[in-house]
């Protein structure tokens, strides 16, 4: 935790220009989504292939409320996140009774429905070409510039990680981990599995929506590209790559997968080949993800004399 705070505080020393800040902000926003998603995938052991949908509800919800209805951005942001949580709660009740492939299919379907609505309701969303989003403002003060955004996103990331770590160490967190181990065993020991799964689902949806709304206000423009199935997959890959059931793994996964394509542009047309190879080699040699594997290695080192 301290390492993360120090990292966020000291990183600007290494950031030379606004483009570097931009990458850091995008890493932060993705990391926030992944920390939330990790609660669901890594701890509660439920898969979601529709998280881009919640991200989209946050982004478009906040964008539409501010741009079309003149809401103050902060209120729109909160309302959009609450709406995503409410939707997750409502649909989570029936679909979280499904398991494995069936749950994956149901969340996938939900994500695709949201994506289609965003692309077709062009009166509100601007359709496939996207829409402009007003900047984030509070009481006449407009949040502008990469540096200001960096500190906001950095602070929110620290807060999300703190929340996640605390939740995992609480009775709810222990119940979630028990669910991941064996749902039957957890129920036998008196854990209300439906309630806990639903909680993790709604919480991760709200966090994704919050990050979505922030992304929209930061970028000033949003297209349905961020709501597609592919983006859902991207988010899951970040969590798995960094290491499931590791909050810092989610942060590292988001950081690597957001920054890597920017570094790989030097390979020109071979960019995707190199990117794919990095992913494959990591998953072959570190099947548990980056952070857990490295942590295990470090622990073994320490034990050996």
């Amino acid at each position: 935790m301290l390492a993360l705070i120090a990292g966020v505080a000291l990183l600007p020393l290494a950031l030379a220009n606004n483009y570097h800040y931009e990458i850091a902000i995008l890493v932060g926003l993705n990391a926030i989504v992944c920390v939330g998603l990790n609660l669901l995938i890594g701890y509660a052991g439920q898969i979601s292939l529709g998280h881009a949908g919640f991200f989209g509800i946050g982004a478009y919800g906040s964008a539409i409320l501010t741009a079309r209805y003149g809401w103050p951005p902060l209120a729109a942001l909160v309302a959009a996140s609450a709406a995503a949580a409410a939707l997750a709660f409502a649909v989570g009740r029936p679909i979280l009774r499904l398991r494995g492939h069936y749950l994956a299919m149901a969340t996938l379907g939900l994500g695709i429905i949201i994506s289609i609505v965003v692309a077709t309701e062009d009166r509100y969303t601007g359709g496939p070409d996207g829409m402009s989003v007003p900047p984030l403002a509070l009481a006449g003060f407009t949040l502008a510039g990469e540096r200001a955004w960096y500190w906001l996103v950095g602070a929110l990331l620290v807060a999300t990680v703190w929340l996640s770590l605390n939740l995992i160490e609480s009775p709810v967190g222990r119940a979630l981990r028990a669910l991941h181990g064996s749902e039957v065993a957890a129920e036998v020991s008196g854990i209300d599995s439906a309630r806990h799964k639903l909680l993790a689902f709604a919480l991760s949806a709200a966090i994704a929506a919050l990050a979505g709304a922030l992304t929209a206000h930061y970028a000033g423009f949003i297209t349905p590209g961020k709501v597609t199935f592919l983006h859902s997959i991207e988010l899951v890959v970040m969590v798995v790559f960094g290491g499931m059931a590791s909050t810092f793994g989610a942060v590292v996964g988001a950081a690597v997968l957001t920054a890597l394509p920017q570094l790989l542009t030097v390979f020109k047309e071979y960019e995707m080949v190199v990117f794919g190879s990095v992913m494959m080699l990591t998953m072959i040699f570190m099947p548990r993800g980056l952070v857990p594997t490295i942590a295990a290695l470090a622990a073994r080192r320490r034990k050996a004399p």
């Binding site: 483009y19 931009e22 995008l26 996207g130 949003i222 297209t223 590209g225 920017q262």
Partner: peptide, 10 residues
Amino acid sequence: AEKARTFAKR
């Protein structure tokens, strides 16, 4: 569009 924006910033 988001990639385009990041590359434009770059």
